[in-house]
Design a protein around this nucleic acid. Sequence first.
DNA 1: AGTACCACCTGACGGC
DNA 2: TGCCGTCAGGTGGTAC
Length: 261
Amino acid sequence: MPELPNVEVFRRYIDATCLHQTIEAVTILDADVMEAESSAQLKHTLAGNRFEKTDRRGKYLFIQLNTAGWLIFHFGMTGYPKYYRKKEETPDHPRVRFVFQNGYRLDYDNQRKFGRVDITHDIHRFIAEKNIGTDALAVDLPSFMEMFESKPSMVKSALMNQKTISGVGNVYSDEILFQAGIHPKTKIKILPSKRLQRLYDSMKYALQTSIDCNAEHACFPDDFIIPHRVEGGRCPKCERELVKEKIAGRVGYYCNTCQKS
DNA sequence: AGTACCACCTGACGGC
DNA sequence: TGCCGTCAGGTGGTAC
């Protein structure tokens, strides 16, 4: 599930709930989500520690500890954080649990276990090693133009490539292309600079609008395509049935009338 | 440097 | 009702 807007909402949730509290214990309920050598280190480093601040790059959420280290969350397709006090509020698939001194807990929940929890001393090295591109909300127009103007790939896959810019996944790439009026299979390098600029504007608009809505579909503007991304869904602008098509390995939805090559 | 395909996991859903 | 194939908002590896 989580793409940039969702992860940004998670980040704000952590900010609003978990900062500056002493961590009493860490329980790893399923080591599958841990990077290989990080389990022991995680428990060791976090006990008695505190979350001081958060940061985000693309779909990665970082939490700085008061001892200079960083906790790293990636949510895969089904992950999310849950802060709660009562046992009956436990999420369905908790994988790592942080227990605070005030009795509250933060669970990293992840049904499909595609996500990861990790810990590092050097966040810049982590980003460099993973080769994570500039955050999609942070990238400026000139850099965006330069990165994409000569790319040979289809625009949908270019947007989704985390090494170029990070944070856009399958669902939001559909939204961005719909807002920009660009067909997803268009080769990005054939786009004239005016359309490339519109793509940039649409990217910022779609991501920021979603964040402002707490990533809740019900709050999205009427002309967003995301709520209509279902079999037989119709274009919110022209009412025609949306095309569902596998593009670069992922199923995308688009309007064959409103989106042009 | 692309794309296509597979793998990793689990659960929901539609068809029979 | 129950079983089974399919598929899903991600990433990483392979081969071509």
